[in-house]
């Protein structure tokens, strides 16, 4: 565990907590893409199946369980408890356009042709693009609440910090994972435009509003 990895995990955890608190406190999931949240739930469920097969550490197991539980809670709040506030009309991204290519890519490019390994690979590819419905929703409405922006910033920072972690691990352990690196780079690039707006607008106290 190095500092980049720990900071990445904490940033990921912070993002999930911010999202849950936002929905809970405002009693509303307006501005949040349910489709991105469904994709994240699929990501956690397919990646963390190894909870049942491999024990790594207490930290590892607890974080996995927290991510799965928080993801389930978010879906419950969005699709059951505060369903009336869910922005159906703007959340119109077709997720099959992400799911199908990720399944195909995971079947072709993977470390090992086994069920667990293909599901892990699929989850890595899917995670890299899972935020697209959310970014699509923001671009459709043309704005995002500050709290939603903080959520997106924390979530985007997490994979960027993992990239630093992988550079560190390559230097310290001469070990690297091309699938994770490739997907992590794609994932981070997708946030770049948002990072720019976050730093130039949200941090200066302005609302994140896209130019018309």
């Amino acid at each position: 565990m190095n500092i980049f990895r720990l900071a990445g995990d904490l940033s990921h955890l912070l993002a999930i907590i911010i999202l849950l608190l936002k929905i809970w406190k405002t009693r509303s999931c307006a501005g949040i893409s349910g489709k991105s949240q469904v994709l994240f739930a699929i990501v956690y469920l397919t990646r963390y199946l190894d909870l049942f097969t491999t024990y790594i550490s207490l930290y590892n197991s607890i974080m996995k369980i927290v991510f799965i539980a928080a993801s389930g809670a978010t879906l419950y709040l969005m699709y059951v408890k505060f369903k009336a506030t869910y922005d159906h009309n703007h959340d119109s991204f077709r997720i099959e356009f992400l799911l199908i290519p990720c399944v195909i890519l995971a079947l072709i490019i993977n470390h090992d042709f086994t069920v667990m390994e293909i599901l892990w690979t699929f989850s890595i590819y899917l995670e890299s693009v899972a935020i697209l419905p959310q970014l699509f929703l923001v671009s459709k409405t043309g704005e995002a609440e500050s709290i939603t922006s903080h959520y997106l910033f924390a979530l985007g920072s997490y994979r960027a910090l993992y990239l630093l972690n992988w550079i560190y691990r390559y230097m310290a352990e001469s070990h690297y994972d091309l699938i994770a690196i490739f997907a992590g780079v794609v994932q981070t690039i997708l946030y770049c435009d948002f990072f720019y707006l976050y730093i130039t607008k949200v941090l200066k106290g302005k609302k994140l509003q896209l130019p018309a």
Partner: peptide, 10 residues
């Protein structure tokens, strides 16, 4: 693509 993944990562 060999078996190079970090199984300890989240």
């Amino acid at each position: 693509f060999g078996k190079l993944r970090f199984k300890d990562e989240l």
